[in-house]
Write a protein that binds this DNA or RNA. Structure first.
Lengths: 241, 241
DNA sequence: AGATTGTAAATTGGATCCAATTTTATTGAC
DNA sequence: GTCAATAAAATTGGATCCAATTTACAATCT
């Protein structure tokens, strides 16, 4: 199958080329995603973005046929999502999109306050100018856009770009999960009153603290910022129900 | 099949009995565990207890035949364990027991410090005398036992019994995962020098703070306690490798 | 009508089979 | 003997099939 004449393109006798030197537009065939992870990514996105309402049943057969696959990868995906708290699975009864109670949401926000203030404080001393620039770009885009669907995404990217330099992978994973569970509800908070404008001003203040290398201030502002979002969201959800 | 004469034992015509009024010795047939969860529980315990060394390959076929089941439930279990960070799964290469690097271990301990001090502070005002009694029992048993395998288990039970009253389910889940990942390594720390004796004294101090309703002190002592365990463990592992 | 029971359809859990990939054993050249 | 190329074995991923369970619904009785 591998004729020598054909192979000269990527094998030069005597001077073996590394794949990394070729600079081709290519996808990593060896590490391509499994069917399960594709289904998982897709479902996760749909739930986080709020496209699937809380309580929506997730039928294995339906999903399987949508992805032209069998139920095995779907079960794998649903199992993972259950562990992340995005769906609830009941034996022989199937999976539904997991809702969140007011007190659960409140607790997760408290968790975020604890985590994110700690992580940003650890991040500030290590923060690169590239990270700051990235954060500022997200921050600007956040204020400019009118698409309410993009707000929470950009909000998330802004914050996360200030956390990454901490190098605290475990903490970042935990923050990721907390954000996954609450992101759906943040849009509603940003939509009401002047949520976006206020968030933007608070983001700027955090950014400034980071630029000045003031870790303690950045942590305190982050605490207050998330705390404010939590209070407004709870007030809104609590009154709406 | 259900003759009226026989049924009079549990159905009295005119006064329909609820199943909950029957008070029969019964097991919950409806909620019995799935094959996957049995495999999962068993593997999780084995890994946490350190019975399976880091890097041990977990062959689906081997495990399946050990449990007299097919590979499907095994895959489900391995997938869950991967998400918890107890195994690492590589496509087509199988799962191995996940080890932990020094810096990962250190980070998880830092995470625990943050979480557990916060949770115990929230727990103290709500703490019942039953919880205190339970914690004291675990504390005593911890000092008395010579079985090094039981130390970390009792250590964990002691701490957890002081956290439960907080009612912070999300935080408790996060603590659970952090403990799952580090429990294997705590035994080694307790075995060295006078780890158990020192831990016992620190446990007593935490217990006393809880009894006195001093949340801030309990939090500070918890911080210092976990911090001490971390430092000793890192010193030991860092030197040993 | 309303509650209750039995039955069929829908749905999930698990077993078995095949395909894709990796790992190991083998062969051949130098 | 060492190294690469090749073939065989082992292993995992996914599809299909069957069993267990729940749900929907019709039939029956009071």
């Amino acid at each position: 199958m591998m004729d020598a004449g054909i192979c000269t393109l990527w094998i030069t006798p005597g001077t073996p080329q590394m794949a990394s030197n070729l600079k081709l537009k290519s996808i990593d065939i060896g590490n391509r995603a499994s069917a399960g992870s594709i289904v998982y990514d897709s479902l996760r996105k749909a739930i986080i973005d709020g496209e699937l309402e809380d309580g929506t049943p997730l039928r294995q057969d339906d999903i399987a046929s949508q992805f032209n696959t069998s139920r095995i990868p779907v079960r794998e995906a649903l199992s993972k999502l259950e562990q992340e708290g995005l769906v609830t699975n009941r034996r022989y009864r199937g999976a539904v999109v997991a809702g969140i109670s007011l007190r659960e949401a409140s607790e997760i926000f408290d968790f975020r306050i604890l985590m994110e203030s700690e992580v940003i404080a650890a991040s500030v001393p290590k923060m690169t100018s590239a990270s700051i620039a990235k954060a500022r770009a997200y921050c600007d885009e956040f204020r400019r856009t009118d698409d309410s669907k993009k707000w929470s995404k950009l909000n998330r990217k802004f914050h996360y770009s200030l956390y990454r330099d901490s190098g605290l992978k475990y903490h970042l994973d935990m923050i990721d999960n907390a954000l996954d569970r609450t992101e759906r509800y943040v849009d509603t908070q940003l939509s009401i009153s002047h949520g976006v404008e206020m968030a933007y001003r608070e983001h700027l203040a955090i950014l400034e603290a980071c630029e000045n290398g003031n870790a303690e201030l950045a942590a305190r502002l982050t605490r207050e910022h998330i705390s404010g979002v939590r209070d407004e969201l709870l007030e809104h959800l609590g009154g709406g129900r």
